[in-house]
Amino acid sequence: MMNEAIQAKSLTLGYGDSIIIDELNLSIPKGEITVFIGGNGCGKSTLLRSMARLLKPESGSVLLAGKEIAKLPTKEVARNLSILPQTPIAPEGLTVLQLVKQGRFPYQSWLKQWSNEDEEIVMRALKATRMVEFKDRPVDELSGGQRQRAWIAMTLAQDTEVILLDEPTTYLDMTHQIEILDLLFELNEQENRTIVMVLHDLNLACRYAHNIVAIRDKKVYAQGTPESVISCQMVRDVFDMDCQVSMDPLFGTPLCIPHGKGRCILKGGEINAI
C-alpha cells in the first residue's frame, strides 16, 4: 500500500533562466499535515504550484498517488488534488454559495449535470467552514477570515484527498489564523485528508504539522517531525537568524524564540532583554 500522496523526483523548477528548485527529491506522507518552511524566495510556493501542475518542471517529475501528474487528465487531477493559492480573488459580486459551487466543476459533464449529491457536498463544505449563514453574501464584502473560510469551503467542495494551501493564514489576525489552522487540523483528523501548506510562523507550523520540510539553496535542507527538524542550527542556516528553541508549554512542540532587540525588563535585580 502506497504511503506517499505526492512525490517529487529530481525536480527542477524555474522561471526563464532563473532556477528556483534544483534536482529536488521529496515525499509527502499520505494522511498527514506537511508544512513547507524557509526564507522568502526560497521556492516554497513554486514547489507547491508544481505539485498542483500549475508550473511545468524544467526537468524531473511530480507523482500523484504514484502516477506522473503531467500525464494525467485535468479532471482526474482536479478530483484528487485541490490548491488554494495566495490571496485568491473572486469576481466582483460572486456570492459565497456561487464560489463554493465552483468546487464541483470537475465532476460536471454533458452526461452528469448538477445533482443532489453535489448539493449535499456543497452544504457540507459550508457547514464544516461555518459559512452557511454567509452563503448569500458577496465574497468581496466578507472579512479576511470569512473570505479565507469561503475559499477553503470551495476547496472542500472539490472533495479531494489532497489539499494544498499557499500561506492560508497570511493577512489574518491571530484569532483567525488559529481558526483556519484548527479547521485544517480537523479535516486531517476526522477525514484523513492530506494537507500540504506553506507557513511563515515556525511555532504554528510545529503545533499543527506532522511533517516539516525546510527548503534552502534550492533543495530540501531537512524533513521530518517538528522535533527532528526545528533546531537553533536549522534556523540559523535556513533563516540566517539566531534563536533559542524551547518547548511550547501548551503543546509540548518546539518553540522558537528569535534573538533581536526589544524592550528590557527588570528581573531579579538585573536588567534582562526580553
Results as ranks from 00 to 15, higher is better:
Leu13Glu: 07
Leu13Cys: 04
Gly14Ala: 11
Gly16Glu: 13
Ile19Ser: 08
Ile19Thr: 15
Ile21Cys: 05
Ile21Met: 04
Asp22Thr: 00
Asp22Leu: 04
Leu24Ser: 02
Asn25Met: 09
Leu26Ala: 05
Ser27Lys: 09
Ser27Arg: 05
Lys30Glu: 13
Gly31Thr: 04
Gly31Met: 07
Gly31Leu: 08
Thr34Phe: 05
Thr34Tyr: 06
Phe36Lys: 03
Gly39Glu: 14
Asn40Arg: 10
Cys42Pro: 02
Gly43Lys: 02
Thr46Asp: 13
Leu48Pro: 00
Arg49Glu: 09
Ser50Tyr: 07
Met51His: 07
Met51Lys: 06
Ala52Val: 03
Leu54Val: 01
Leu54Ser: 00
Leu54Lys: 00
Leu55Ile: 13
Leu55Gly: 01
Pro57Lys: 02
Glu58Ala: 06
Ser59Val: 01
Ser61Arg: 05
Ser61Lys: 09
Val62Lys: 00
Leu63Lys: 00
Leu64Tyr: 04
Gly66Ile: 02
Gly66Lys: 02
Pro73Lys: 12
Pro73His: 09
Pro73Val: 08
Thr74Ser: 14
Thr74Leu: 15
Lys75Trp: 12
Glu76Cys: 03
Glu76Val: 12
Val77Glu: 11
Asn80Tyr: 04
Leu81Thr: 03
Gln86Ala: 13
Ile89Pro: 00
Ile89Cys: 05
Ile89Val: 15
Pro91Asn: 09
Val96His: 11
Leu97Lys: 08
Leu97Tyr: 12
Lys101Ser: 12
Lys101Gly: 05
Phe105Tyr: 15
Pro106Glu: 14
Leu111Met: 14
Lys112Gln: 13
Ser115Phe: 07
Glu117Leu: 15
Glu117Pro: 03
Ile121Ser: 02
Ile121Thr: 10
Val122Ser: 02
Arg124Ile: 00
Ala125Asn: 08
Ala128Thr: 14
Asp136Arg: 08
